[in-house]
């Protein structure tokens, strides 16, 4: 199977409650809370597309979109 790489993080700002779970447990420290306590991808280039943030987010606010390495969108 081809390696997956990140295409985009979709974070629903209306649903995010700023709990910080995605921020704390992202293995690559990609995510942060902004000054309104909403999650955003501060370092998207470091993302490995593991989706742990999406799986753990209690507010269903994160979708991680990935594509196969080398694929053009």
């Amino acid at each position: 199977m081809a390696k997956l790489k990140l295409k985009a993080h979709h974070i629903d700002r209306d649903w995010c409650k700023g709990c910080g779970i995605c921020v704390r447990f992202c293995p690559k420290h990609v995510l942060q809370l902004d000054d309104r306590e909403k999650a955003y991808a501060a370092h998207p280039e470091k993302c490995i597309g593991c989706r742990l943030c999406e799986m753990r987010c209690p507010d269903l606010s994160i979708t991680v979109e990935t594509e196969e390495e080398g694929e053009k969108s």
């Binding site: 649903w15 700023g18 999406e54 799986m55 753990r56 987010c57 209690p58 507010d59 269903l60």
Partner: peptide
């Protein structure tokens, strides 16, 4: 949505896993 559970309430993660 957004649902009624408090920030960080684990019940939302159960919902997400169940759907998955």
């Amino acid at each position: 949505f957004p649902h009624i559970w408090c920030p960080g309430c684990g019940h939302g993660t159960v919902l997400k896993s169940l759907i998955t």
